[in-house]
Each structure stands twice: as C-alpha cells, then as structure tokens.
Amino acid sequence: MKNVVIKNLNYSYNENTPVLKNINLEINQGEYVSIVGQNGCGKSTLCKLIIGLLEKDSGEIIVNGLSLNKDSIQEIRKKVAIVFQNPDNQFIGATVEDDIAFSLENNNIPREKMITLVKEYATKVGMEDFLTKEPSYLSGGQKQRVAIADALVRNPEILILDEATSMLDPAGKQEILSLVNKMKLENPNLTIISITHDIEEAYLGDRIVLLNEGEIVLTCRPDELFKNSELINQYNLSVPFIVQLQKKCQELGYQINDEDTLEKIGEMICQSK
C-alpha cells in the first residue's frame, strides 16, 4: 500500500524563491526513506507540507489514501508524527510522564488508559526510570527518546525524523539509531521518513531521496548512491572514508575495486614498494 503519494507538488515562500519544484514521490507502507541534500534544498519544507504545517502552492499530497486539505488535515495529523532537530524545542511537559501524556490528552484518551500507555511507551524508549524527571536533568539523547515516545504513543502510521540526531553527541546519536531500528522490528508497518546530513545514517534506510535546489535528483537504494562518489561530491554530501580512500588510491594508480575493504587496501599499499 502507498502510504504517502506526492503529485506535482510546488511550494514557494514568495514569488521569487521557489522552494520545491514539481515533486513527485511515492512512499510505501513500512518503508524507511532517507531524504538527503544540502541546507536549504527543501527537505524540511517537504516534511512540513506532508503534515500540513505549510500550505502547498499546487499539486497534491495524499496520506493514507486521504488527500490533504482543510477538511482532512486533522485526520492526517493523527497518522503522522514528527520529531524535530532541537531536543529542547519539543519538550512541553514539566516531567517525562507529563510530556508523553500531553500527546494523549489532545486525543481524549481516558486517564486510566493514559497511565498504562505512558508507562508502556516510556519503557519502549528506555526512559521508564525517568518518568518524574524534569527535562533539565536529561541529556539531549534522552530528550529525543522522549520525543520519539511522544510521537509513537499516538500510534502513527508515519514517523518523520527531521534531523533528529544532528544535535546529539555520538552516544546520543547511537541511542536514537538503535531505538529506530528496534521500532522498525517491532512494527514493520511503520513508515519512517528521515531527513539527515549523515550519509552513514542515510545508509540505514531502504531508499534514499536526494533533493537539490527543490528538485528530486535521484531516488535509489543507499548503496547505489554510496558508491557514486561523483554524485556525492556534486551535491556536497559527506563522503564515507572508504570512498575517499578509494578515490585517492585510484588517482595514485593503485588497482582498487569497489568491494575492497580497508584491510585489503591497506595490504595493497604496504606491498607496493
């Protein structure tokens, strides 16, 4: 089933600055799609359009079979949850449990059920020992885990991660990536749209969508992009170390294959005298 269908979508902040140009994209239920591209290429704008935080100029956005408009927006927002970049900007409650409960309060969930759900989702994200803690006592990674609990407790069909790890330290980032992985295993039908600059992170998805200046340049399997250092350079994506090394070796005349591991390249360098 198609979870998100975007047809001929256009959006601009004003007449002179088109942000998204004729976007066509289909995302299947249960698919994990990474959206990559430079700052200002329209990644975040695209996500904001999908949940109706911004209004499109033209084209159509269909989420779960519903075309996005004024009448369907509330229904669609129940299906889509988003986790933003800055952990401090999305902590609303005074404590972890309040924060998770806030999501449910908006949806008229009875108190008894709410208490069970808050505990259940806090446990899912590994924050069950912090229920009564205030945000100032939490690390960035912990706050983002709470933000993911806030998102998932509403049982969405689609989870959008808008650079959700970019303000975290390596440990915090790892926490989030393994959590997302776990969520995916527990609920294979959950569709994930992840916006990221980190090529190693984008590599975790089923598919990569590369945006440049508001247009989709390419959608492909991550390893296909990963191997294409030309595209990576052209669109200013970060280049994985192995690709940099292979390129350097090729320039210097070593016989390098795409599959060669660091070990193999190392041996080749040491043997050539």
């Binding site: 330290d169 390596p170 440990a171 660091l262 070990e263 041996e267």
Partner: peptide, 20 residues
C-alpha cells in the same frame, strides 16, 4: 569518553600494523 575514533586514524593504525 563517547568518542568515535576517526576512520583515517584507524586506517593509519592498520597500515602501521602491516609494517608501513
């Protein structure tokens, strides 16, 4: 310390182990 050793450094160590 929550530190990821750079890949370049790891590769240099690998070369060193192989006798470079």
């Amino acid at each position: 310390y929550s530190i990821e050793i750079p890949k370049l450094f790891q590769f240099c160590k690998l070369l060193e182990e192989k006798g470079a």
